[in-house]
């Protein structure tokens, strides 16, 4: 029972072993990881990179919630066949606002790093609703309920605020308008639509992603996210063009 009544020599041995394990184990990790925290000094920068809109962020959270990352990577490697199949290889800067990253480790389905705008919204909705309607041999689960589940928007400002705490530069204005921006992005005719463009840039796509302008569903959010993948910045396309021009 006594926590303090033991012999000092025995105590020092166990503590010594503990410290030895910590030293041996931690230094390797620190030496290897520490330089990565200064890596932004050397990697390419993307000054015009835009942020995820509240709707896209909500879609990203649905992507995480459903475990899509278990079967889809978002990291095109620097290999010829991957570039031919999926597009320009992924750059570090492209996921700099991804908390957490979704690079993935397995491709039971194809890579999604550049899936954005490759397929129409209708295709995505039909595919998510039942993949086998579009790709007969697909083994992807059906996500039919996304189309009927209302998206929760009342706490989106808190989400943006938390994102800002970990380093994503959302402005006060973006945080204050998070819920209405989410609604307006999927309803381009809404009066608040101009604000979305003003806050997130001209490249932002405003569409009724799920085909129902008046309803804001989880399908809207997920499709909006999928359609922006690979389009937050054109750094990857540009840098490859530069490399080719230089040769």
């Amino acid at each position: 029972m006594s926590l303090f009544g033991f012999h000092y020599r025995l105590e020092s041995k166990a503590i010594g072993l503990t410290l030895g394990i910590i030293a041996a184990a931690s230094i390797g990790g620190m030496v290897e990881i520490a330089p990565l925290f200064t890596i932004h000094q050397t990697v390419e920068d993307a000054p015009g990179m835009r942020l995820y809109t509240p709707l896209e962020l909500a879609g990203r959270n649905i992507y995480i919630r459903e475990g899509c990352y278990a079967c889809h990577s978002q990291m095109i490697r620097t290999l010829r066949d991957e570039v031919d199949r999926y597009g320009p290889y992924s750059l570090a800067v492209e996921s700099k606002y991804d908390h957490p990253m979704l690079w993935g480790s397995k491709r039971t389905g194809p890579d999604l790093a550049r899936i954005g705008e490759k397929y129409s919204d209708q295709w995505h909705v039909a595919h998510l609703n039942n993949p086998r309607d579009v790709v007969p041999v697909s083994v992807m689960p059906a996500y039919g309920w996304l189309l009927t589940t209302e998206l929760r928007t009342d706490d989106l400002d808190l989400h943006l605020r938390a994102q800002r705490k970990v380093g994503v530069p959302y402005t006060d204005n973006m945080i204050a308008n998070a819920a209405s921006d989410a609604y307006a992005q999927s309803n381009p005719d809404a009066p608040q639509a101009d604000g979305v463009i003003k806050r997130y840039g001209k490249a932002t796509t405003l569409r009724a992603f799920d085909g129902q302008p008046t309803r804001l569903t989880e399908m809207d959010a997920l499709v909006a996210y999928l359609q922006v993948l690979g389009h937050l910045t054109d750094a990857a396309r540009k840098s490859i063009a530069e490399v080719e021009a230089g040769q």
């Binding site: 492209e94 996921s95 991804d98 957490p100």
Partner: peptide, 11 residues
């Protein structure tokens, strides 16, 4: 939301 992002988070 993870404190890390992108390449740091991956590592």
């Amino acid at each position: 939301y993870s404190a890390f992002s992108g390449v740091q988070d991956a590592m």
